[in-house]
Design a protein around this nucleic acid. Structure first.
Length: 825
RNA sequence: GCCCGGGUGGCGGAAUGGCAGACGCGGCGGAUUCAAAAUCCGCUGUCCGAAAGGGCGUGUGGGUUCGAAUCCCACCCCGGGCACCA
């Protein structure tokens, strides 16, 4: 019997799957479709173990579902725009396109070498002009629909990456890529109107089969709150409301506490600051605005800043409409211009931030909710009856919070001051980037006509080849005359091209749709093909995309459906999501940028791709993070050799016999069907680590069986081994394919149907009954499954070990035949 | 601070109300071998004991239950998310 040599066997099967198109699927394939998709990777060169883990899980499912008779769509693509290629260009001068085009085959080869199978005819690259064309075309559709717009706004600027960032890309005030502190700048930028979909994005989460963790993160990010928006009349010099002045609009979730409002606060960036500042206070107000402007978010958010509640009075007052009192207006940086109206009613009795501010600045504090007697805190934010809350028309006293809120909102509405309002934390998606290596935004600037879309016939707008990257790192598009200078599509006069490119998350927001119809030259995809495969049945990727990519992709799907690009009824892109854990090395995430990667090539060379795949499945539940140091490659390799020796048709491990079936043979039959049942169930629920344990246990059982003196019954062992190989086929495809082919005359295991457990073979006629005394195990018996309660009880009491523990009559006996008898002494 | 996960042998983990520690790694012992590698077999939570056997044991403390790693309450520790969002 030859020894198993993975390096000879594995490439042969990889070639066969590719050459025969085993995992290619046509759109008119008659089988029931299943769409299994792993998030497409950024092509940073050869894969590392983190990638391999991700794509192994996906590959297992592709093969499993195929064996279950589905027509599985398994595409792969490359998220090939992005900063690493541009940074490499700045260093070496190599054009990002050349750099990227060289990296993609390296990554593709890595994936092929671990046995991952795809319909490679459908491969997508974000930077492919054909893909750029449709990304730009979609931008223009969104623009027409009012979902893309250009506006000046305070934006996040990363000085390291020399570009603006979306809110989602700022982590604790730092750029998520470069860790540089992010600066606030007022700039005119492009946005996608994701806020139009805030409510739907929130509501539709409920029906998704996604990890709760991800759904919760998205809910928090969307951040819906219910409250009231209303106007505070501006006080004139006489302390009375000035009927000429526009009231100051504020947003609150606690309109019930209005009687406790003792001052108002506006954000330093609020547009009405100038108008609401008295002549005497102009100087300090401007100084404060300047001070805040210079602070980065990281300074503004640091713990000490959060505590000290800096701010200045504007010298003007507003009227608290609940009490009629004139109260002062302050500027403070704890009020954000980006949320609500950028101005608040401050109620120090019921809000800790307002409390802190009031204490710092010596302002009045009035409680309007009765705290419990033992309340020892400062601001009281809990539930309780309203107090100090009545005027001539409105009396909230004694009402609980919910009722008081509703009553206060009704009153504000009657008074024509404001109304109920729902607010979201979610901001529009800032999509423009001042970078070269991204999808150009297809618009031109004309002096006469203004902002004009590039006509569809001129798409794609592709970045030029003859560009020079300077050490400063700015985009060469801004100084490339050939790219920059164009003519206005409307008036034909000279015009300038937009030099901003799109966030690379735009590319990944619709690639899963393009996979369904990648050859389409008339549209990004057809409704028919999108409907055939979508939503994605199983999406697989890292938890780091819980908000960014997964929220954007959901928004895109809804917006595409509403603009008629996608089928109207396609509201969600991914039905099921699985987020696999990351691979760590030395306690930190393995990634190219951290320089701590392990290349699979060396491991494949030494142990084989199947051993690596098995080690990935075996080491931990797939959802959890794992340290590379914990992988057990040698043990997995050893197991594969054990299977080889057992399953090879010329095995020297044992002799078979043809005698009548014995009890031992029957036990193997039962074990075989129990394993089929078990592994099927475990594959379905992503319990790959216990499935591997099942394979190992079963193999151990078979070894004991075939090495026993009686030898093995040929029929029994053949059935057992064939079942084992079928169950292994999705996990260790090369070994399973090779052995099956040897055993079955060149047949392809991956085209065989998935085995099913015979219920009749799962029936066992004896069980182990344990006997406890006071919950402690004292004895055990093999009993017939059908044993009666009386017999079980009698048997338990007959045990000497049990009797030794008993002192007199048992007080109570619980019988759960045939598994347990518990005697309470 | 708020919201999620999680805490089980030397290590990765298994068991979701009923035999704690499956399976693997590591370790120990044996077979085979001139020897080694490879392979095969056995043992391996901890304490007491020569053994039989027994005590203890799933972060800590309490509770529910005939019975708790599993359910409930309080707390400690670790990881993640959000963080002045009115």
């Amino acid at each position: 019997m030859p020894r198993y040599e993975p390096n000879k066997v594995e490439p042969r099967w990889q070639d066969l799957w590719a050459n025969e198109g085993t995992y290619e699927i046509d759109n008119d394939d008659p089988r029931d479709p299943r769409y299994v998709l792993s998030m497409y990777p950024y092509p940073s060169g050869p894969a590392h173990i983190g990638h391999v883990r991700n794509y192994t899980f996906g590959d297992l499912l592709v093969r499993y579902h195929t064996m279950n008779g589905y027509g599985v769509l398994s595409p792969i693509g490359f998220d090939s725009f992005g900063l690493p290629a541009e940074n490499a260009a700045i260093k070496s001068g190599e054009h990002p396109r050349e750099f990227t085009d060289a990296r993609i085959p390296e990554l593709a080869a890595s994936l092929r070498r671990i046995g991952a199978v795809y319909d490679t005819r459908r491969t997508i690259k974000s930077h492919d002009p054909e893909y750029i064309k449709w990304t730009q075309w979609i931008f223009l559709r969104f623009w027409e629909a009012g979902l893309a717009y250009r506006a000046e706004a305070p934006v996040n600027w990363c000085p390291g990456c020399k570009t603006v960032l979306a809110n989602e890309q700022v982590v604790n005030g730092l750029c998520e890529r470069s860790d540089d502190p992010v600066e606030k700048r007022n700039m005119e930028q492009w946005f996608y109107k994701i806020t139009d979909y805030a409510q739907e994005l929130l509501d539709d989460l409920d029906a998704l089969e996604w990890p709760d963790r991800v759904k919760i993160m998205q809910r928090n990010w969307i951040g819906r709150s219910e409250g009231a928006e209303f106007g505070l009349p501006i006080a004139g010099p006489d302390g009375k409301a000035d009927p000429e002045a526009e009231p100051l609009m504020v947003y609150t979730t606690r309109p019930d506490t209005g009687f406790g409002m003792t001052f108002a606060v506006v954000s330093p960036e609020h547009p009405r600051v100038e108008e609401l500042t008295s002549d005497d206070n102009k100087k300090i107000v401007r100084a404060f605005q300047a001070e805040v402007k210079d602070k980065s978010d990281i300074d503004r958010m640091s713990t000490s800043a959060a505590l000290d509640k800096r701010g200045v009075a504007t010298g003007r007052n507003v009227i608290n409409p609940f009490t009629g009192q004139a109260i002062p207006i302050f500027l403070a940086d704890y009020v954000l211009i980006t949320y609500g109206t950028g101005a608040i009613m401050a109620v120090p009795g019921q809000d800790q931030r307002d409390w802190d501010f009031a204490k710092t600045h010596g302002l009045d504090i009035i409680r309007t909710v009765q705290p419990p007697d033992d309340f020892g805190g400062e601001a009281f934010t809990g539930a309780g009856p309203a107090i100090n809350s009545s005027n001539g028309e409105l009396n909230l006293d004694g009402m609980e919070v919910a009722e008081a809120k509703a009553t206060a909102i009704d009153w504000l509405t009657q008074q024509n001051l404001g109304n109920r309002k729902i607010n979201f934390r979610l901001r529009d998606w800032l999509l423009s980037r001042q970078r070269f290596w991204g999808c150009p935004i297809p618009v031109v600037y004309c002096d006469a006509c203004g902002l004009r879309p590039v006509p569809e016939s001129e798409l794609p707008i592709v970045a030029p080849d003859d560009v020079e990257f300077l050490p400063g790192g700015d985009s060469p598009l801004t100084r490339h005359a050939g790219f920059l200078n164009t003519t206005c599509p409307d008036c034909g006069e000279p015009a300038r091209r937009e030099t901003d490119t799109m966030d690379t998350f735009v590319d990944s927001s619709w690639y899963f749709l393009r996979f369904t119809d990648p050859w389409n030259t008339d549209a990004p995809f057809s409704h028919e093909d999108a409907s055939h495969f979508l939503p994605v049945d199983q999406y697989i990727g890292g938890i780091e995309h819980a908000i960014l990519h997964l929220l954007y992709a959901r928004f895109f799907t809804k917006a595409l459906a509403d603009t008629g690009v996608a089928p109207k009824e396609l509201r969600e892109p991914m039905k099921r999501l699985f987020t696999q854990g990351m691979v760590r090395m030395g306690g930190v995430k393995m990634s190219k940028s951290k320089g701590n990667t392990v290349a699979p090539e060396a491991i494949v060379e030494a142990n084989g791709a199947d051993a690596l795949r098995l080690a990935i499945l075996q080491v931990k539940p797939p959802a959890e993070d794992v340290d590379w140091e914990d992988f057990q490659l040698d043990g997995c390799e050893r197991f594969l050799h054990r299977v080889w020796r057992l399953a090879h048709p010329n095995t020297d491990l044992f002799q078979t016999h043809k005698a009548d079936p014995t009890d031992a043979d029957r036990a193997i039959e039962v074990a075989t069907h129990v394993l089929i049942d078990r592994v099927t169930n475990e594959y379905e629920r992503w319990a790959y680590n216990t499935a591997v344990a099942g394979f190992m246990e079963f193999t151990n059982v078979l070894y004991r069986y075939v090495q026993s003196d009686a030898g093995a019954n040929k029929k029994t062992i053949d059935e057992a081994v064939d079942a084992l190989l079928l169950l292994l086929a999705p996990a260790v495809p090369h070994l399973a394919a090779e052995l099956w082919s040897l055993r079955h005359d060149g047949d392809h295991i991956h085209l065989r149907p998935w085995p099913t457990a015979d219920p009749a073979k799962l029936v066992v006629d004896t069980a182990t009954m344990i006997v406890q005394v006071n919950g402690k195990l004292r004895d055990r018996f093999e009993v017939p499954t059908e044993i009666s309660a009386q017999d079980a009880k009698a048997l338990a009491l007959s045990s000497a070990k049990v009797q030794a523990q008993l002192d007199g009559e048992p007080r109570k006996i619980i019988v759960r035949q045939p598994n347990i008898v518990n005697i309470v002494a």
